[in-house]
Design a protein around this nucleic acid. Sequence first.
DNA 1: TTCCAATTGTTGAGAACTCAACACATTGCT
DNA 2: AGCAATGTGTTGAGTTCTCAACAATTGGAA
Lengths: 184, 184
Amino acid sequence: MDRRIQKTRQLIMNTFIDLLAEKGFEKITINGIAERADINRGTVYLHYVDKFDLLDKCIERYVELLLNHCANSTDTTLNAGALQSIFEYLEENFTIYKLLLSNEGFGFFRSRLYAIVSQTVTEVIGIKSENSAFSNGVTTHFLTSGFIGVLEWWINNSMPCNVQEITEQLMFLLEPYTKHLVSR
Amino acid sequence: MDRRIQKTRQLIMNTFIDLLAEKGFEKITINGIAERADINRGTVYLHYVDKFDLLDKCIERYVELLLNHCANSTDTTLNAGALQSIFEYLEENFTIYKLLLSNEGFGFFRSRLYAIVSQTVTEVIGIKSENSAFSNGVTTHFLTSGFIGVLEWWINNSMPCNVQEITEQLMFLLEPYTKHLVSR
DNA sequence: TTCCAATTGTTGAGAACTCAACACATTGCT
DNA sequence: AGCAATGTGTTGAGTTCTCAACAATTGGAA
């Protein structure tokens, strides 16, 4: 893809996030974004239909970035490395995800994250344990909610424990399920 | 001017300065600049003919930026405010000017700065004291060399005294001349 | 020396961005 | 209610930048 597109979108999103933190979604204008980013107003419309669309794309992007940090691990195995990688990334971009998980995110971020994670979990369960007692929606939503709940708690409370601790604790909690679900 | 031009030139110069500090002028390539700046190689040639031209323009630009900080003061009077403004700016951009004044600048920065400052001093002397004993080259070059020498010393020695001190001391040294030369 | 890889400087076509202008909607003030 | 200021969304013409390709040069290792 043309590098101008990547740069411009990155710039617009960064500016959007900054303004979101400063004044909230309500008071954000396309005008304001263009001025702050020092680009033409029309350029914003070249990439996003309006500020709602921009919020959507922004959330989509940051969900993607977050999950890429475990998709990078070669297999679908839920291993400590992938978990740790995610929480390290969250730590680095703490302010952004705190913002997206706050009221300013309108719950959209949470629901997008939930949708993707639960789908992945469903797939993994389906593949790994076709004949076991885990092949049902309850398991999927139990694990997804648990994981996302912990993630949300950790961010909202400004990382009350370090990455090492939360990773280990989470792995411990998931162990009973990984034993049956994730092995090959 | 088209904002793309300003942004691109700014980006190229910043990248150039970074590379200059990292590996020195010798090892800098147009390729390397384009890669680091994440722009097309051809774009660099759109603005500069080669890396020597880039160095020139870079020096010219930073001389301009430096002197703007006293040209902003309304009159040509050599006042404490203008001096302080210059040294504050130097303090903020210390690493850049230390680099340009070092061997990597090849003395080009110093000589450009000297040329412009001495010309201004000549003009001021000419205007302010047409019939005094100061109307000659000796005065111009004495004052210019003194000023730039102090500036160079201050930067090369990593700002051994603070802005307040160097400003006051310099004003004290210049006082005998400002009395006769700069008043209206 | 010879060869290979990297760099240089240029080209043309096409995509992205800028800018100014437009009509229209929204906001806030008196 | 009326007015002014600000924001919205779109358009068309013009500029800048990208990209891929090119021939020519340079620098270092075999």
